[in-house]
């Protein structure tokens, strides 16, 4: 689906649900680009890369290695994250993510996106969902 991803679940999940109700589309249910939560005991690994320290600025709100919090970032593609950040830059400055997107150079955003995309998980999703 080409719809933009969203870092604010409240604003976007309704449209995701409507999309799901309207059609069992061949595209992901979540137009907002969320990856599902990781289950207990999942093991996450990531290589040392230039973007690691930059990306760690995301972890206070998106959890260590980007595995949760406001939105799970780990597992998203580097292009998805990059696109999202560039879109946030163009929006109102009085949003936390807009301020953050504007706070980094484009090269820094590319490095941190590549790092988040490199995070790997080797355990199953939560079984209860």
């Amino acid at each position: 689906m080409s719809a933009p991803s969203c870092l604010n679940p409240k604003a976007c999940c309704t449209s995701g649900l409507i999309a799901a109700l309207l059609s069992f589309a061949a595209t992901p249910v979540f137009s907002d680009g969320h990856a599902p939560a990781l289950g207990a005991g999942a093991t996450v690994s990531a290589p040392a890369m230039p973007g690691r320290l930059l990306a760690s600025n995301c972890f206070q709100c998106h959890a260590t290695n980007g595995v949760g919090g406001f939105d799970r970032l780990a597992g998203l593609g580097a292009n998805e994250i990059m696109e999202e950040m560039l879109e946030k830059r163009a929006k109102s400055k009085a949003k936390i993510m807009s301020v953050h997107a504007l706070g980094y150079s484009r090269e820094q955003l590319e490095q941190l996106s590549a790092y988040l995309a490199s995070v790997r998980t080797n355990a199953a999703r939560p079984s209860s969902r």
Binding site: A42, A63, T64, G68, G69
Partner: peptide, 17 residues
Amino acid sequence: LLRGDDDNNGDGSNVNF
């Protein structure tokens, strides 16, 4: 996620790194 609960993705505390 669909309840509009912001704390929807877990805080990572139950994940091993």
